[in-house]
């Protein structure tokens, strides 16, 4: 974990989202899919807490080496609005990489990646690492409307089969990613499922994977105070490995990636709602420079 005052290399609009690329070599070279950074807010405002941004991509090689990219949803809250209004050449105080990363399957090859809205951003970093290890990647991505489906073209580039769904049918099928899951699992012969997003979505993924005996990993979103294990507020109810009981784990240091079979969804109030999008804290996404068509210096 490193702290950096990271320069903003570029910031650009991507559909409903704002993408920020930061120069943070020490963090970028350590970052792995599923991890996040904690971005400090300005001191003269009345919103205090760091924003926790899932790493969409970290570039360790090539022309963009040493950069991190993440995605925020303008208007989701004062912190993400502030982040989305930052301009290139400014800088922000970030701490990272934080949290436990996704792990990669050793033998199994067919991976299905599932996400909704901004949470999808974190899955591209994972998808690229899986492809680099010779895995087959399929994706199910969704949003409320066309603008909120994150990078559908990049999803097609990265994966074999892509299912796109929107609540209003403006892009892909009408419906939710949860509705589209069974068919996507069957068509791609999924052997491992990865998901990122709000508890309600992850709970549905967990139920499907339990029924079909599929191993899965989910990256949770829960309100965090600090992001590095100090405050104990980002609680996730988790069964002990030996099944002898349960306790609240911390999403920031024990997660954010968990085995969904161990999460006690009934004890997690947010999992009982039908919200598939989380509000702030936002998710960070790093971009694939090869796909970059926007202005970069």
């Amino acid at each position: 974990m490193k702290r950096a005052r990271a320069e903003i290399l570029s910031t650009r609009r991507l559909g409903a989202y704002q993408s920020l690329t930061l120069v943070a070599p020490e963090i970028a070279e350590r970052a792995r899919p599923g991890q996040f950074v904690a971005a400090a807010m300005p001191e003269d405002r009345n919103f205090l807490l760091r924003r926790h941004l899932t790493i969409h991509q970290s570039s360790r090689r090539g022309g963009w080496a040493g950069t991190l990219e993440f995605v925020v949803e303008p208007g989701a809250g004062p912190g993400t609005t502030w982040l989305s209004e930052l301009r290139a050449h400014g800088s922000i105080d970030i701490i990272g990489p934080l949290g436990k990363a996704f792990s990669y399957p050793k033998r199994l090859t067919n991976c299905l990646l599932v996400g909704h809205g901004r949470s999808v951003a974190g899955l591209y970093f994972l998808g690229q690492e899986l492809v680099a290890r010779g895995k087959r990647v399929d994706m199910v991505i969704g949003g409320s409307t066309m603008d909120t489906v994150f990078k559908p073209i990049e999803a097609k580039r990265l994966s074999q089969l892509v299912t796109v769904v929107t609540d209003d049918g403006t892009l892909g099928e009408r419906g939710s990613v949860v509705d589209a899951l069974p068919e996507a699992v069957a068509r791609g012969g999924a052997q491992v499922v990865y998901a990122a997003g709000a508890p309600a979505l992850l709970r549905a993924v967990a139920a499907l994977c339990r029924d079909r005996k599929l191993p899965a990993q989910v990256a949770v979103e829960e309100r965090m105070g600090c992001g590095y294990g100090l405050c104990g507020t980002c609680a996730v109810p988790l069964a002990f490995k030996d099944g002898s009981g349960w306790d609240h784990a911390r999403a920031c240091v024990d997660g954010p990636v968990f085995n969904p079979a161990r999460v006690l969804w009934d004890r997690w109030p947010a999992a009982a709602t039908d919200r598939l999008s989380a509000e702030e804290p936002a998710h960070v996404v790093a971009d694939d420079p090869r796909a970059g068509t926007e202005t970069r210096p």
């Binding site: 104990g232 507020t233 609680a235 109810p237 349960w246 609240h248």
Partner: peptide
């Protein structure tokens, strides 16, 4: 005795502050 603490969410931002509850986990 061990305490599992409060159900999440445990923190929310308010003007120039936070309202929190860990339930002494």
């Amino acid at each position: 005795e061990p305490r599992q603490g409060s159900a999440p969410p445990r923190i929310v931002e308010t003007p120039s502050g936070i309202v929190w509850s860990t339930g002494l986990q």
